[in-house]
Simulated scan of single mutants.
Amino acid sequence: MPTLHACGSNGGGQLGIGHVDDVATFTPCVFDPSCPPFERVVDLVSAASHALVLVSADGHNHLLGAGTNSHGQLGKVCVLTECASPATSFRPLSIAVDAGFDGWEPVKLAATWTTSFVALQSPDGSSVRTQVIVAAGSDDFGELGGGIIRLKEGERVEHLGGGQRHVLAVLVSGSGDGRKQRVIGWGSARRGELDPSPQPDKGKSKARMRFLAPTELTLDLPAPIIDISLGASHTLLLLADGRVLAWGNNMKGQITDLGDMTGVRAIGATWNGSYILDDQFWSQGSNTHGQLLRSDSGKTRAPRATVTAGGEGIEAFAAGSEHILALVRAGPRTDLWAGGWNEHGNLGLGNKTDSAQLVNTSIHASRVWAGCAASWALVE
């Protein structure tokens, strides 16, 4: 079966590769013997110096983590140690137990700069299956949201995402014609990242609070939300009808006219850029490190334009802090292509030179994740 590999920034041991040195080629991750033998990787998120992995073993999900625990973002106590030093291999975490939910199963993950978020579901056999979102780590911009975010009766977490300092959760209740979604957000709010209301075309923007507690956002949803992606201070939502909702900071042009696009299949946000996949691959926003993957590298505010890659077309992609990983169809397999900021070797190309275009890493991968100058791939 595929194995998890990583490259890039690793000063906190967050790549989980057994040491704290940056690496510029994809390197197998290390899993502590205390981890259950798992069948698949369900999801992975990472931020400044820690990473969380959700794996499936024996029909249940398990939460693993690696990296620095200076703010308690890996929980109060790891299985083997209190993590005074970086955890350089993935190991089970205690976040659910710390919050008083021992036996609850992790189902969704998110992370901001130094904070972790885990959606938990009550154990099998519970009279009513209930979900909560628990947070662990720093609270500089209210990211913890009080530590435990309780859902309404019958709700479950459908999407959970973190930007640099803000968090969004799409909650769903009911089924069929009675299915309803609502969106809550919390954390940093000064730049409008939690304010989807239309802004005036001219004049001074309205004053905003520095941060928000968990708050339901007022949204007009003509179709269900099927994905979310958060940048440093802007927010993207993808709807089932192929349209995009976008709000927040637009100083780099990262959300300009995104609402006009149709037929969108996938979205992604770097810190100061937005990426859209329809029949083509589009990018807009900051291009100071070539992260928009096109010829106008160096621009601080670049308009939307197309990105190209070899093979038979981009099937999926992941957006990191300022780099992109793309899975490109090449006959019966998918090749991993990478481009953008590469200061820590996070493109996996064997060097630390920025790339203003997507480059084939020669890695055959089935899934990719991108974090803060860090990359992970399920390698075939």
Rank of each mutant, 00 (worst) to 15 (best):
I314P: 00
A136M: 07
V307N: 00
L293Y: 04
G310C: 08
I363M: 00
Q181G: 12
G331C: 02
K252Y: 12
N10L: 00
E216S: 10
R243D: 02
E39D: 15
K76E: 10
A87D: 07
R304Y: 04
T88R: 06
G154D: 10
P214R: 11
S46W: 05
L217S: 06
F141V: 04
S94C: 14
L63N: 06
R190H: 11
W104L: 11
G345R: 01
D124H: 15
G12V: 03
V264E: 05
G340N: 03
G203S: 08
L217F: 11
A51G: 09
D220R: 14
V172W: 00
V368K: 07
S173H: 09
R129P: 04
L52P: 14
A370G: 04
G263F: 06
A135M: 08
P36Q: 00
V79N: 11
P332A: 03
R367T: 14
E380C: 02
A316Q: 09
F26E: 06
N351T: 13
L44Q: 12
G176I: 09
Q357G: 13
S138G: 15
A330G: 01
D201P: 00
G65W: 14
V307H: 01
L151S: 07
F31E: 03
T25K: 04
S49F: 08
V20I: 13
Q280R: 14
P196V: 02
S175T: 11
G8T: 03
D58V: 05
K202W: 12
R91E: 15
T3E: 15
V79Q: 09
H71S: 15
A316N: 13
S85Q: 13
V307G: 02
G350L: 07
W376Y: 15
P224E: 03
T306S: 13
A377P: 03
R294Q: 03
T81C: 02
P123H: 10
V132G: 05
A309D: 00
R243F: 10
A338M: 06
G263H: 02
L358P: 06
S283L: 11
L378G: 01
A57R: 06
A169S: 13
R304L: 01
L358S: 00
G331E: 04
S355W: 05
S127I: 01
L236A: 05
T215D: 12
N250R: 08
G163V: 10
